[in-house]
Simulated scan of single mutants.
Amino acid sequence: MRLALVLSGLLIILGAQAEEVDHAAALASLQRADSLLIDVRSAEEFSAGALPGAIRIGHDEIAAQITSIAANKDQPLVLYCRSGRRSGLAKQSLEELGYRQVINAGAYDDLRPLLEADN
């Protein structure tokens, strides 16, 4: 019984981490003037370094705060965090709220050199 509970918990965790990261879509979306780059990491992580133009909203706060920066549910939203897991969770929350153009850009350390090369 305990093994079944452990395995089901592991599947839930893996499912939360399985959100697809799409760097190409993120870079294309960020070329649009109306797109928003959102850092869903902690305030401490953000203050240690963030991507230019990023707005910080913690992944656990995004559902409550998103309408203050993006009332239009068709506005492109590009999310990133440390590994892609929290941005994946935030993407799911936003899609449940009806946002249609949400992209998980994955990890800060992976996205930063791509943005620098794109400029």
Rank of each mutant, 00 (worst) to 15 (best):
L3T: 12
A107N: 04
S68G: 03
Q65P: 00
D110L: 13
I13Y: 06
N104L: 09
G84I: 07
A105P: 04
A54R: 02
Q101E: 10
L51Y: 06
A90G: 02
S68D: 09
S83V: 06
A105K: 02
S42A: 11
R112I: 10
A43V: 14
A25T: 15
P113S: 00
L7H: 09
G106H: 06
Q65G: 03
L97I: 11
D118V: 11
S68K: 08
G9I: 04
I66A: 04
M1S: 12
A48W: 08
R112H: 13
G49E: 08
R2E: 12
L3Y: 11
R100T: 14
C81G: 06
R32S: 13
R41C: 08
N104I: 06
A107Q: 05
I103Y: 02
A48E: 14
Q92V: 13
L111K: 01
Q92L: 05
S87C: 03
L89W: 05
R100Q: 13
S83K: 03
E44G: 07
L30W: 09
I62W: 09
L51P: 04
S29R: 10
V78M: 07
L77E: 07
S35M: 10
L11P: 06
A107T: 07
I62Q: 08
A4R: 11
G106M: 05
G53W: 06
G9S: 11
A4E: 13
F46P: 00
G9W: 06
S29N: 10
D60C: 00
L3Q: 11
L94W: 05
R82Q: 14
G106Y: 07
L89E: 06
A33R: 15
A43D: 15
L51W: 07
L115W: 03
V21T: 11
L37M: 04
K91E: 07
Q17I: 14
V102I: 04
E45W: 05
L36S: 04
A50S: 14
A25G: 14
P52T: 00
D60L: 13
Q75E: 12
A117G: 08
L111D: 01
A70F: 06
R56E: 02
Y99Q: 10
S35Q: 11
L11D: 08
Q92T: 14
S68P: 01
L97F: 13
I103W: 03
V102A: 05
Q101A: 10
G15F: 09
L14N: 08
Y99P: 08
G98M: 10
L5H: 09
R82V: 01
N104Y: 07
S35W: 12
I103P: 03
R41S: 09
I103Q: 02
M1L: 10
A25C: 14
L77A: 07
L79K: 03
A43M: 10
E95A: 07
G58T: 03
A71V: 11
Y108I: 03
L79V: 02
I103D: 02
V40W: 02
K73H: 15
L11Q: 12
A90P: 02
A107L: 07
H59T: 00
N72S: 10
D109P: 02
A63M: 00
E44T: 12
